[in-house]
Every structure is written in structure tokens, then in C-alpha cells.
């Protein structure tokens, strides 16, 4: 064996091919089957897609690096289930490009954050966390409330996600910009369109508490309030009401 290696070392190309061959096996065995084995991701017929406003909020979450300190993956451990809620199912992130499971909890897990606090709490907490939680070390995000949300590119976002397999309809894509504004402006004509396209369970509220065009705060709070609310499968299997 060592004699063989003594010869291998004299051929650069052979060494290159050997490295590629030996190193590819692990990834192929572990990753490829995840795309083909049906049990990998369970079925959830009630799974809904993110609205344009929630998607924009998700992109702000990514932009600000929230995933560095907050996980969105409740493990199958008793203390986690009791602290955060039913453990996370694979289907719950099946539309997440990329996934935001995270790897560190400097702050708490957010997988089931939706509806846990009020919109006003979130807006105040994001403006300055220490106003509400004096011991918090979370950064303050005062610029979110005063930055108007960019909505003109949202149809493009939905279209690209549809290409990748997220089931957005043509109507959702065409109305994405209007729906983003409508979701943060309840009791307007545009708000009705949101419920019509994304379902009655969609949160249509003035998330940042300020009138007018949607802000980045609207989007981020809308996203946070939706976390864990895309499907009731985890609650149904755990035997409690969502």
C-alpha cells in the first residue's frame, strides 16, 4: 500500500484525481438521497407560502445577520419543546431559500415566535431592545422604522422563487408590490387582495403602528409574526391547538 503511494506521489494528475474521488464519496452518500427519499420531508397540505411583505421581512432578517444569534430549529429535546414549542418539522422550511436554522443561540430560538408578542412589542423591541428587556444585548435597529420598504422588485423575487419550486401563482407575482403595501394597510381595497391570494389566516395589520407606505419595520414584524405559522402540522402532531 505504501509502495503504491510512493508511485502515486510522482504523478500530479493521479494525485488530483485520487483526492477528488476520495473526497466526493461522503457528500454523495449523505446529500444525494435527501432529494430522492420521500420520507425526508413530510407532507403538509396546509403549508402556505410567504406573502411579499413577509418575504421582504425575511430578506431584512438575512441582511442584518439575525441568523447569527437566533436559530429557527427546535430540536427534539424535552426542554426545547417546553421552552419554544413543538419541535421543527422539515416541511416547515421546505420553501426556505436559504434555510435559516442557525447554529447559535445568543438570543432565543425564533421558530415559533409568531403571535407570541404583539406587533407594538416587536416594533418597540426592534427600535431598542433595552427599552423592554433591560438585560438584552441585542442590537437596536432604529433605522427600520424610518426606512421605506422597496417593493418595486418584489414581483421579481417571487418569480425567481417560483423558478426554484415555491408555488407562487401568476396573480401573486403580478400583484406582489400592491400586496406588500396592502398587508400593512388593513381595511383598504389592497388589503382584501392579500387575503384573497394568500388565505384568510394571513396577518393583515399595520405592523409598525405608523400610517402610510410600508416601512422595513412593517416587513420585518410581519415576517416575525408569521414564524411557525405556515403550517399547523407540528401543533397537530403534538396534539395541541395551533
Amino acid at each position: 500500500m505504501f509502495g503504491l503511494h510512493y508511485k502515486l506521489e510522482t504523478k500530479a494528475i493521479a494525485l488530483v484525481l485520487a483526492i477528488i474521488g476520495v473526497s466526493s464519496i461522503g457528500g454523495l452518500v449523505e446529500i444525494a438521497p435527501l432529494f430522492t427519499i420521500d420520507q425526508t420531508v413530510e407532507e403538509a397540505p396546509d403549508m402556505r407560502v410567504l406573502t411579499p411583505l413577509e418575504l421582504a421581512g425575511r430578506n431584512i432578517y438575512i441582511r442584518e445577520g439575525c441568523n447569527a444569534c437566533h436559530s429557527q430549529m427546535i430540536r427534539t429535546l424535552r426542554d426545547e419543546v417546553e421552552r419554544y414549542g413543538p419541535y421543527s418539522r422539515a416541511v416547515e422550511s421546505q420553501y426556505d431559500h436559504p434555510m435559516l436554522w442557525g447554529s447559535k443561540r445568543t438570543g432565543p430560538d425564533l421558530a415559533r415566535l409568531g403571535d407570541k408578542y404583539s406587533d407594538a412589542w416587536h416594533a418597540a423591541h426592534l427600535f431598542n431592545p433595552r427599552d423592554l428587556v433591560p438585560q438584552s444585548v441585542m442590537p437596536a435597529y432604529p433605522w427600520l422604522a424610518r426606512t421605506q420598504l422597496r417593493t418595486d422588485d418584489l414581483p421579481l423575487h417571487l418569480e425567481r422563487l417560483r423558478t426554484l419550486g415555491v408555488p407562487y401563482t401568476q396573480a401573486m407575482i403580478e400583484n406582489a408590490a400592491a400586496d406588500a403595501a396592502g398587508q400593512a394597510a388593513p381595511n383598504t381595497e389592497r388589503a382584501w387582495g392579500v387575503a384573497e391570494r394568500y388565505g384568510e389566516a394571513t396577518n393583515v395589520r399595520d405592523f409598525d403602528g405608523a400610517q402610510g407606505a410600508p416601512t422595513e419595520m412593517d416587513a420585518l414584524v410581519a415576517y416575525l409574526q408569521m414564524l411557525g405559522r405556515q403550517t399547523a402540522i407540528a401543533h397537530a402532531q403534538a396534539g395541541d391547538a395551533p
Binding site: I31, N59, Y95, H97, M99, R160
Partner: peptide, 22 residues
């Protein structure tokens, strides 16, 4: 998949559990 050639944002082609493993 980039939004367009003129935009920085892109969406990774894998999602959820496959994306996590990758």
C-alpha cells in the same frame, strides 16, 4: 439564482433540509 444581473440579491437553489445539509 440571482434576481437579475443588475442586482446583488440571489436565492440559493436548495431549500430547507437539503440546504441545511449542503
Amino acid at each position: 439564482l440571482p434576481l437579475s444581473w443588475a442586482m446583488a440579491k440571489s436565492y440559493p437553489i436548495f431549500s430547507g433540509v437539503q440546504d441545511a445539509m449542503t
